[in-house]
Amino acid sequence: MDNWSWEIFWDAFPVVLEGLGITVGLTFACYLFALIFGFVWTFLRRIPFKPLNWIVTWVMEFIRSTPPLVQLFFIYFAWPMVPVVGMTLSPFASAVLGLGLHFSTYIGEVYRSGIEGVEKGQWEASRALNFSTSQKWLKVILPQAIPPTIPMLGNYLIIMFKEVPLASTIGVVGILHMANSYGAQYWAYLEPLTIVAILFLVLSYPSAILISKLEKRMNRRFNKNEALNSSKGATT
């Protein structure tokens, strides 16, 4: 390891670390955007009007099957040139919009699977007891739909954290950007990029463990309900 220098490592460390706040902040901003917009997709798809559903499904599919990098470039570089609706956004805002929108389509699917996981009988019982629409959602459907989605939502947080460095390509000054400019300035890439890798590992590995713990707990909960269903099934 002739090229490795601990001196450079410790010199670069605080520089790269400076970008951490932006990287983490961007992750949470994108995530929040995706959580909210995921709800919008789910809501739009539940409106009982077929043409709207087709359009929404198609738009979601389109967003999901284009690379996030292309979406970022489009929003940051191309959108300002679009007549009438075009506008210039800061790199950070472009990244929130681009990555947030991209991931909102996945989050929307997670919500949908949660809602569809609630048995038909639960909707019918809500009606038989004459619940209003909001009571049905708040008292019956969501309390059953949300818990099974929590591990999946957690996974998307980690995935998103790992996608956020894409934003350095449009100039968001996160850890990757800091490492790159350090490298360019001192012609030393190995140490700063190693620091980036270490930071990602240190943050996402414990989160992943936490989420898999959560998942096990949710599974146990789910299996409890499974036992309930199969005892029903056995007697029919």
Partner: peptide, 23 residues
């Protein structure tokens, strides 16, 4: 219902008293 359709996330008592309170 044939398959009961109780609310699995509520206790027996909550199953019974939720509708009178809210509806």
């Amino acid at each position: 219902f044939q398959h009961f359709n109780l609310f699995p996330h509520m206790t027996i008592l909550e199953n019974c008293m939720t509708a009178p309170i809210h509806v």
